[in-house]
Design a protein around this nucleic acid. Sequence first.
DNA 1: TAGATTGTTAATCGATTAACAATC
DNA 2: TAGATTGTTAATCGATTAACAATC
Lengths: 213, 213
Amino acid sequence: MTLDPIPELTLRRLPQYYRLLKNLRAAGQETVSASQLAEHLDIHPTQIRKDLASTGSQGRPKVGHRIPELMGSIERFLHWDNRSEAFLVGAGGMGAAVLEAAGLDRAGIRVVAAFDANPMRVGKKLQGVPVMPYEKFEDLVRRMHVAIAILAVPEDEAQEAADLMARSGIQAIWNLSMTPVTAPTGVLVQNADPFASLSVLVRKLAESQAPKA
Amino acid sequence: MTLDPIPELTLRRLPQYYRLLKNLRAAGQETVSASQLAEHLDIHPTQIRKDLASTGSQGRPKVGHRIPELMGSIERFLHWDNRSEAFLVGAGGMGAAVLEAAGLDRAGIRVVAAFDANPMRVGKKLQGVPVMPYEKFEDLVRRMHVAIAILAVPEDEAQEAADLMARSGIQAIWNLSMTPVTAPTGVLVQNADPFASLSVLVRKLAESQAPKA
DNA sequence: TAGATTGTTAATCGATTAACAATC
DNA sequence: TAGATTGTTAATCGATTAACAATC
């Protein structure tokens, strides 16, 4: 089975649908139409039909999609049902925030160990996850065949941490730090890059405040 | 003066150029060509020329752009020279991480106060910024004419915090929490939405691991 | 049946890339 | 001058939206 590459924008919209579906289900709703989703999310209904079609979910004319089945399709399509183990690098505030969030669990990611350069943090637990020293990282990656690492260190240590990850055999880096990092070919990197969205915001604010011609 | 709306993708690429320019400048380089930037960033040179042109920077044939001037153009274009004040809501780990990062200062954002629902945190300082109770938020927004708020609370409190911001007259919300929030028309919201990038990563990893046909 | 909603094919739109004349 | 690099116009590509036949 080969997986077709899917537009990244579709991959980013699907979790939005999922979150909304969860709310609708909680509100007791059983089915939903593309137009209904469209209204809530301000996305074109045809766009939503295409996105949903790519997950393999099938709706019924006049009824729409059954919410639980649709959620299942999205989970499978995004491989949220994969249940993979991950390491967290950086046991500070950012690391704690991501462990607290529901998204990790939903995406099927289980963080089994955290690592930190600061000896004060080593030996403690963060949200129930043991914190270990950097020295143990590579060995554990190889012994446990962990493919995913979450990068949550301060920005001046980010690239260094990414290098350690790549060197240790990590296959995919999710970079939550405030600055993008790079890794050698073969290692997937996804930079959350929060400051990119700040640039957009600052510019949009200026546009909205500029006196109109 | 009216500002043309600029493609969001351009706005997201410009900070990348800026970071690279900073490194090149630190390495003693004085000018740079679009092709050079392109090589480092794996972006098409013509794309870079267009992006740079939209900032108003002018390069010279055979030479390229002078790095300091180019950096200045990007700063002005992104309104990083605006020097605006902002409030931080959520004085936990996420809030601390963003205050530590260089990006805020670079974007001209100065966080003058933080707010937290937890009385344990109120009265302390976070990276030199005083932490106050939620009750003071609205009054201070109006008195100080603060337009930008940074949302850095745990995900289950995010929407509530966004509502408070909108109600208090905040014009632009930069949402760093792990879940997107919404706000009434007229209030700009930019969700960093880190989990969107996780979805992309998990899917790409699955694609790369799937046996080829 | 009538009509709402689906999924798909075609048209449009916007962003990226190619081609090229201008110029330092 | 020759050639590298610019900025811009035209071509391509991909994503979004419109149109519509199928169907519950």
